[in-house]
Design a protein around this nucleic acid. Structure first.
Lengths: 197, 197, 197, 197
DNA sequence: CATGAATGAGTGTTCATTCAT
DNA sequence: AATGAATGAACACTCATTCAT
């Protein structure tokens, strides 16, 4: 209808983004050629450059999508009036579930970030920092109110947890023995147990 | 006279490896050209191809060095007759310290692994697995003897901790506020606290 | 209401031609994209291809305009019944003035001619030749009547003068010390002095 | 012998430069692809980029060669102790002869200069200016000593003459009726006649 | 042991042009 | 009369690797 939906039913930019995401995750950004992307999306190079300014623009779009998604979910969860330990547990588990649900994006995120142009890299890092700070605020809130131990600085705690989240893409297999929610519960549990006073 | 020690005092292969390590860490494997490596090492291309079969052979050597180092240290620490919680704490802290001391290698490890030829990749993964299994054995030993909680499967616990270790190269700065040993103690502490029954 | 005068008050084809002239002169024909031209003219690509068959059609139009202009002026000046040395002086000065007044077109003319399709190139060259021949006739007339020296073949004289005319676009600056008319008088004077018997 | 003379007897860089010169002159810089150049020289792209940093480096080399040549000749001619009118006549004629003998280079010079990278362009312009100034000094010397008319500013005189020199590549044909030296004598004569007091 | 000239397949990107609407 | 999505061929340039010396 829109003139951009001929082949695969979905609009061309979405098809390109989906193809790029899969290929970047499988082979890495550098090992993926623009030619491969357009072939996988069933269009020509000209079409890609009609919608995206460059190859690393595609990467930026991938990041944008997952960053927005996770920020929204964290904002929603952290903003409730549940007790802080409950909010932290939910946030910690939720980021695991959405990471597993978007494992390709995450894999790309932590493997190919350094291929972004400096300006875009700065922007992505700023958004990432905002996300981490919101999470850290939860930890600090619990530490101040005494429900969490003060033994470890809050930002180290955050890095500890997000390390394990990033690491998911290295070992988690959707067809493995553990469902996303089970992993999430276990990892959130480890975090909360580590924070017991 | 030795023929391999002309310029920098150190043998040519070592100079090449050191140059490659620094460049791979700074710019990534793909963004580093063979030309850059040989220039940084003060030799010519012919010399590189005399000692190494290919560019990804250099990568493989970088991996080999750090893998051997960490395996040796873990074997030594895990093999003592100290109580298991003490051995786990020491192992967990030690891997943090040696990771920070070899941050370039670690950065390369988790960013460029997928550039290895399939055969070499399999080999690296096998060595990595062996390392993780030794670590997991410590967790399981403690769980069996009741000093660690059985709430979380041991391999998840291992992945939890190593996630944070891999993540170090994303945020740790040698000129930051925390010394390597302090970070190590904190992270080991978090692990041990999470495992409290 | 006319449908071709929407934005700038001037008809679309003229806007396109003016934009193309400026851009071709500033950046050269090859360095100017059709996209730039239509953006500068405030229209879209479809509009350009509605009025012009191709990019080099625009170039051809630029040439046509300046060639027609100069031919008309030469015809008018050469056709008077003033003495031949006066007519040649006027013609020689006039082409300098109109060249300076249309410096963009001239710049394009001598820099981008070779980008015309062969057929159009032949046509432009034919018109150019006609122009030169009219000029040469003046020189020959003066040589026959004895007011100009016969030392140099007339066509060499013409090439000598037009060389300096073409060269104007390489050095003349509107904000420089000499007005167009001053340069014109000087160059015409040099020509006439060279032709003194 | 040197390992760079296999095919055509001449070293690879020279073969590349010769091929590029001919093609740039025939088709223009923009219309000539690197692929065409290396095919004409009988080497591969890699070889070209082994010796030249970029396509416009080739252009720069072409300029360098002809600029050096003409500067040397002018320096030699202007430095003798012959009367100034004789020195100017010789210089004016000589630049015509060497221009015709290197007509390809000259064609390139005035058609493709604007494709040079800004830094190289500045350098070429500086060398060109030096050349013009040396020439202008001759005119001024004659004007001061009274053998040349003061009616026209010296730099306009220089531009007048060099206009006709640049223009040569537009009309001179080696197989035409006039030998290079004949053209040179005529053009020098025109200049000197124009300068008669 | 080591050189460095040369290869050749591959890269991301540009752009004049077309055509369904 | 005009749009703008899409084409597809061409472009300059890179680089790991080879090999005669």
């Amino acid at each position: 209808m829109a003139g951009t939906t001929e082949n695969g039913g979905r609009p061309v930019p979405q098809r390109l983004l989906a193809a790029a995401t899969r290929l970047f995750a499988d082979q890495g950004y550098d090992r993926t050629s623009v030619q491969e992307i357009v072939e996988a999306a069933g269009v020509t190079k000209g079409a890609l450059y009609h919608y995206f300014g460059s190859k690393d623009d595609l990467l930026h779009e991938v990041y944008g999508r997952v960053l927005r998604l996770q920020q929204e979910r964290l904002d929603a969860l952290a903003g409730t009036d549940a007790p802080v330990e409950r909010r932290l547990r939910q946030a910690a588990a939720d980021v695991v579930v959405t990471t597993i649900e978007n494992l390709d994006d995450t894999k790309i995120f932590f493997r190919s970030m350094h291929h972004l142009a400096p300006e875009k890299l700065r922007q992505v890092r700023a958004e990432r920092r905002r996300y981490h700070e919101r999470f850290r605020a939860l930890v600090e809130e619990g530490q101040r109110s005494g429900v969490f131990s003060r033994a470890t600085p809050a930002d180290l705690v955050v890095d500890y947890h997000f390390g394990s989240v990033h690491h998911l893409s290295s070992w988690y297999r959707p067809d493995g023995p553990l469902a996303a929610q089970e992993v999430a519960d276990h990892l959130a549990d480890l975090l909360l147990r580590a924070l017991r006073p």
